[in-house]
Amino acid sequence: MLRVEGLTKKFGGLLAVNKVSFTAHKGEVLALIGPNGAGKTTVFNLISGALRPTAGQVYLEGKPIGGKKPYQVAKMGIARTFQTTTVFDQLKVLDNLLVAHKLRTSSGLVDTILRTRRWKKELEESRARAMEVLDFIGLKEKALAPVQVLTQEERKRLAIGVALATGPKVLLLDEPTAGLLQEETEGIFGLIKSLKQRGMTVCVIEHKMRMVMNLADRVVVLNYGHKIAEGTPEEVSRNELVIQAYLGGEHVA
């Protein structure tokens, strides 16, 4: 599904990501873990087109996507969320999803001004899709609420919803539970689980090891921009290099 090959990024003289390769198979949850500054978010930025790779290539269903702009990558079917929860906080909940689904529509300026049949049909489709997503993320009652009234956890759900509304084949989630309380984290866990049940391919950056153990089919471990291990959660947790990396770092799982 999503194949990353020899991905490398240099910032000046610093090698932030060094020849990282991995594959996320269709319908699996792949966790990207590693100590702070290991280059996990940089990998996401490289896949989603926010950064240009120095070397290496990313393939989605065999098609290369390296060097494309973020909006093109999104159109190809890779959606992402950001570490700091980002939704359009000046828009209403429903509008967040409608605007995210816009990339699957083709109405232009003239359609919009004249409200042509195509425009109406696409708006209906976008709404249906948005309601479906709202239902899925459990925010159906708040469709017309402004984002400001949402709780932190609801915003995280909405951020995932916004990514889903783009109609992705692969979902990249950057620390979806950062800053949440225990029971709120459970809620997001549940959401990712049901995504998996629906056959979505998910790559997730996560620090909470319990979540990684429960949820991930496979785990890729990064340290100082290198991939140091890959495998099932059990394999990775027994890996010497991984244990060392984490003992040297601040996280002890």
Partner: peptide, 8 residues
């Protein structure tokens, strides 16, 4: 940034 990420 987010607008670009959702395909705009």
């Amino acid at each position: 940034l987010l607008a670009g990420a959702v395909g705009i």
